[in-house]
Computed example of a mutant assay.
Amino acid sequence: MKITGMRIHPILIPLRKPFVTSLGSKYQHDGVLVKIETDENVFGWGEAAPSKNITKETQESVIKSLNEIKPLIVGENPFEVEKIMDKINYVFGPSAKASVDIALHDIFGKKIGLPLKNVFGDDKKEIRTSITVSIGKVEDAVKEAVKIVDSGGRNIKLKIGLKPDEDIEKIKKIRESIGYEPRIRVDANQGYSVETAIKTLREMERYEIEFVEQPLNAKDIDGMRMVRNNVSIPVMADESVHTPGDAVNIVKNDAADMINIKIMKSGLSNALKIADICSAAGIICMVGCMIETKIGVTAGTHLALGKRIIRFADLDGHLDLKFDPTINGVRTEKGVNKVGDDAGLGLDVD
């Protein structure tokens, strides 16, 4: 089997409402879909979800990177994923390369007749995802949390990191409204200093927070360890981990209790390696996402279902889109993600 071509499809999809974090606001998904074709009429879909703040990409830079990658992979055997990813490694763009990585795995699964969840280990049949409440007014956050719980969701992820006192007030009001059965996790997206993180998270401890994602700047590994050692809420590294080497660094420095794996940061091949590093170190993982179509979220769901060390999911980015061109793929019902038994990713694009 040989790769014969790669089609690049830019997309622009409005969001249902603005998505606001401590890193900024997002109003639309300006991503890129990729279709890799072969001489056996087996094709694979992938997706790039660029982020100026996290992957340092734009839609334009992704397209440029993919046009650079295309001649490098045509003629290659799509089964030789590691060889291909090494060959294109020098090209700029984490999510651009991730889209190729996802598509190659889709081809692999289709060719051998297995869904990727089975290829990755087939550990579980479904996984509960958190549903995200972005930064906004206290009363709006409470209404959104109540809406999530009323619709069957049981894991709420609250974006924090801009106004610590308001962050605490939101948690308090949300707990008063939904009680203590639903789980709440928080994500500061690098918004706090060490001192502010320790003070704020100690105030939040009484509200039974499941864990906090990336309280500090991604490069402040020593600070992450300090926060971890001074609060009872488990600390999860997110933006601090893009590569397997980053995961090793977190482990060596005891800087986090958990790691959030995102395919758009690392690619699918490296995501599997990060999961294995965490498994060896006994560090529980979550699979997260950006704002993505069901292509990216389906890939993340297959990964989460396949690996035992992945206990948590934040795979709700597709729910923010006004429309999605993906046919089939992940199903999210009452906060639970499932995929079918079709080979590969189990999806197509309209």
Rank of each mutant, 00 (worst) to 15 (best):
V62W: 13
L33T: 05
N53L: 04
F43G: 02
I54R: 02
V32K: 12
D30I: 02
S61W: 10
I54W: 06
T55P: 12
E40K: 13
T58H: 01
I36S: 01
E57K: 05
T58C: 04
L33S: 10
G46W: 11
K64T: 15
V32C: 08
T58L: 01
Q59T: 05
N41K: 15
E60W: 02
E60S: 12
F43I: 14
I63K: 08
E40D: 10
T55L: 05
P50I: 01
E40Q: 12
T38G: 10
F43H: 15
I54D: 01
V62C: 15
V62F: 13
T58N: 04
K35M: 04
W45G: 06
E47T: 03
L33H: 07
K64W: 11
I54A: 10
K64F: 14
S61G: 09
E47H: 10
V34H: 08
E57H: 02
T58P: 02
V42W: 02
F43T: 14
W45K: 03
A48C: 06
S61A: 11
E60H: 08
E57Q: 06
P50L: 09
D39W: 01
D39E: 14
I36M: 02
T55M: 06
I63F: 03
T38Y: 12
E57T: 04
A48T: 00
G44N: 08
K64N: 12
E40I: 12
T58I: 10
N53V: 13
W45E: 04
K52P: 02
I36Q: 03
T38S: 15
K52F: 00
E40S: 07
T58F: 02
D39N: 15
E60N: 07
E60P: 00
N41F: 07
K52T: 04
E37S: 10
N53H: 02
G44W: 13
L33V: 13
E60M: 03
E57R: 03
K35W: 00
P50E: 10
E60C: 00
W45S: 06
K64S: 14
T38I: 12
E37V: 11
W45R: 05
A49K: 13
S51Y: 00
N41M: 06
S51N: 09
T55N: 07
K52I: 04
T38E: 11
E57W: 07
K56E: 12
E37K: 10
W45C: 05
I63E: 12
K64V: 15
E37W: 00
V32G: 07
S51W: 01
D39S: 11
A49T: 15
K52R: 13
V32R: 13
W45I: 05
S61I: 12
G44K: 08
E57V: 03
V32H: 06
V34T: 07
P50Q: 07
P50T: 00
